[in-house]
């Protein structure tokens, strides 16, 4: 029963036209929720959370650094899944997603590197060290840029998606290295603040704003992916009747 529902959803959202209608319904309420959540988390974290016993106020950059890093990693995992579906099942929407997910993720990876450097200087005493976490995060940024570049360099969009999809899948190995680098080898970077299993050692007064900022940024990422995917769907289906009809006589609710 559940499997049937998932399968039906998969096929429905796999249709560009259905996806367009569906995203028209979702975006109007997902966008404000994402913005309000992110703003709440950031204002709470940057303005009201207590200062740290060791780092004072400089630790506050965590409320940008950790959400951005986690967003970049999760985005790349999603890119890998889209790549797998695009390469094996040749699904059109997966190709669209491959194109829609990459830019925001690349921006987040860059933000993560910059905020990390700015945080590192006052605490560790250096902007950059070639330790495993920082180096693998830099490679993640390059993987994102590679996926974007590969899509632009091949003219046929379907072929471009297959090449980029393969690169996206291969890059997932690097995501795993980024995640576990701080546990497997000696690094300057500390371990993960928020642990998937087991208790985090961050005080609850700091943990909740951090979790809210993370959720807000993930939702904003989803909004960005939906908007990019809509543009891409329109472009790819520009010769279809439904797009022509949408452009000339838009129905109520469809923008």
């Amino acid at each position: 029963m559940v499997w049937q529902t998932i399968k039906r959803w998969y096929h429905m959202l796999g249709s560009p036209r259905y996806f367009y209608t569906f995203s028209s319904l979702v975006l109007p309420w997902l966008t404000p929720i994402a913005l309000v959540t992110l703003l709440t988390g950031l204002v709470w974290g940057l303005g009201f959370a207590p200062s740290d016993y060791q780092q004072g106020n400089s630790y506050r950059i965590i409320f940008i650094h950790v959400p951005a890093s986690s967003g970049a990693l999760m985005g790349y995992m999603a890119l890998g899944v889209a790549g797998l579906v695009a390469v094996v099942w040749r699904m059109k929407m997966a190709e669209v997603m491959l194109k829609a997910i990459a830019p925001f993720g690349a921006a987040l990876a860059a933000i993560s590197l910059v905020t990390g450097a700015l945080w590192g200087k006052p605490t560790w005493g250096t902007y950059w060290q070639w330790d495993a976490r920082m180096t693998s995060m830099l490679i993640l940024l390059f993987m994102y840029v590679g996926v974007i570049a590969l899509q632009n360099v091949i003219r046929d969009p379907r072929q471009a998606a297959r090449a980029a999809g393969l690169l996206a899948m291969v890059g997932v190995i690097n995501v795993i290295i980024v995640k576990y680098s701080v546990e497997w080898v000696q690094t300057l970077h500390q371990g993960s603040t928020l642990k998937l299993f087991g208790e985090s050692t961050i005080n609850p007064a700091m943990k909740y704003p951090l979790l809210i900022s993370m959720l807000g940024l993930w939702l904003l990422y989803a909004v960005n992916v939906l908007m990019r995917a809509r543009t891409e769907v329109m472009w790819r289906e520009r010769r279809s009747k439904w797009v022509a009809k949408l452009v000339t006589r838009p129905e109520k609710g469809e923008r």
């Binding site: 207590p50 200062s51 740290d52 016993y53 060791q54 780092q55 630790y59 965590i62 605490t123 560790w124 005493g125 250096t126 060290q129 300057l188 500390q190 371990g191 993960s192 603040t193 985090s200 050692t201 961050i202 005080n203 007064a205 700091m206």
Partner: peptide
Amino acid sequence: EVLAKHDETYMPPEVQDALEKAGHPGAQKS
């Protein structure tokens, strides 16, 4: 060159003081 490491424990100074006063082993985890 000497760089400082720090761990993933973050807490307000008051909590750190209270832990230290109570002699909690967590206070040494800095």
